[in-house]
Amino acid sequence: MTEAPLVSLASLDTLWFQVSGTLCNIACTHCFISCSPQNHSHEMMTLADVEERLDEARAIGVREYYFTGGEPFMNRDMIAILEKTLRQGPATVLTNGMLLPPAVCRKLKELFDASDYSLDIRISIDGFDRASHDAIRGPGVWDRVMTGIANLVAAGLNPVITVTTAAEGVETSEGRMRFLELMRTFGIDKPRLKVLSLFRIGAEEKRSRAYADWERLSSDMLETGDAGSLQCASGRMVTSRGVYVCPILIEEEGARMGDRLADAQRPFPLRYGACHTCWVDGVTCTT
């Protein structure tokens, strides 16, 4: 096999935080990092952990911040973390939408209004109805997500709904229209929808299939496109265990680049199967 191609960090624009580690209140069959209530491979981050990296990020001139997990709202410091972050840039939270009681939504709306910078909430839904969503996410989840969305809307926030291609047909324009209509029934009058492709790692590896050996990148393949559009060319991921190359590979020890952002500026070899999906599908996790 040929040498894996190297991608340089052209500019650190997007900083991710694995803010609740790999801890999630549910365990989806397609989760690409196998998050669950028991997965402690990355731990919950504290406000102080996040602040240290935010200070570094401010000096570097990072453009935007993303918070994911696991489930970010399992982190008791989440509101404080967002408040701090929004003083220096826009923030997006990727949530399963289950832990959004009215009081939390009202607090989020206060942060939204108080900041010069945007605060975005992204909720993932799988499928067009309760049955398909719950088949992937677990019984009762759909109803709790609907409550979370209703609470956000009632507080005056307009979440982005992300849907994975596990929702059959959603990538076609009819599927899309159907989904936008569905969102209106959730009470969202300015629907914002993002369709994501799936990665065949973590739990998703068992649900569909693992990567084949040929699904690796070579330098020749990279010459046919713009490597600068890969997430690892403009972003990094911070977890309780240090700085990783991207949000996708945090379970690969080889993807850990150091303790601080300053340690994580060097080019990265695209030697993983997930890199193939990134490249071929043009995957991006940002909004």
């Binding site: 570097i60 990072v62 220096q88 840039g89 826009p90 010069d116 945007s118």
Partner: peptide, 14 residues
């Protein structure tokens, strides 16, 4: 370059 997604440190860097 939108107002709400172009924070000061980023613009300073540009």
């Amino acid at each position: 370059l939108w107002r709400s997604t172009s924070p000061d440190p980023f613009l300073e860097r540009l």
